[in-house]
Computed example of a mutant assay.
Amino acid sequence: MSGDEQAPEWDGEELTDRELAARLCAECSARRACLELELRTAGLDTLGVWGGLSEEDRRALYPVWLARRGRRGGPSS
């Protein structure tokens, strides 16, 4: 790290992907848009932390998200 950079508060803690996602994205104003982008582009092939959710959480959410899009008359793919 250089200059003004500081280690995150959780540096050295053992965090699950879910905990890390929640901490990284908690105050982000783009959280919902970020999640929407990942669901639209990656679907079940999602990787990493997007929209404050872990890969496992997004994979579980994906079928629900698709069903809601279909009910609203949006594209289903």
Rank of each mutant, 00 (worst) to 15 (best):
D45V: 01
W50V: 06
S29T: 11
Y62M: 01
R72F: 06
E14F: 06
L35S: 01
E27L: 03
G51D: 04
P63Y: 03
E56N: 07
A67F: 15
A67H: 15
M1T: 14
W65A: 01
L44E: 15
P63I: 08
G12A: 00
M1R: 10
R59C: 03
P8H: 12
G43W: 00
A60E: 15
A26T: 11
R71H: 10
S54G: 05
E19D: 13
Q6P: 09
D17C: 09
A60T: 12
L47Y: 10
P63F: 07
V64F: 00
G70T: 10
Q6K: 15
R31N: 03
L37W: 15
E5T: 04
A30M: 11
D17T: 12
L24S: 04
L66Q: 14
C28P: 00
R69C: 11
M1I: 08
S76M: 04
E27C: 03
R23Q: 07
D57S: 09
G51H: 05
A60G: 07
R68S: 11
G52L: 10
E14H: 13
R58G: 06
L47S: 08
S29K: 14
E27N: 14
A22F: 02
G3E: 11
G73K: 09
V49D: 02
D4Q: 13
R68M: 07
E9H: 11
R59K: 13
T16H: 13
E9C: 08
A67S: 14
T41Q: 14
Q6L: 09
Q6N: 13
G12H: 00
P63A: 04
A60F: 10
P8D: 10
C28A: 13
L47F: 12
D45G: 08
G48Q: 00
L66W: 06
E19F: 06
D45K: 13
E55D: 12
G48N: 09
S2Y: 02
R69Y: 06
G12F: 04
E55L: 10
W10N: 09
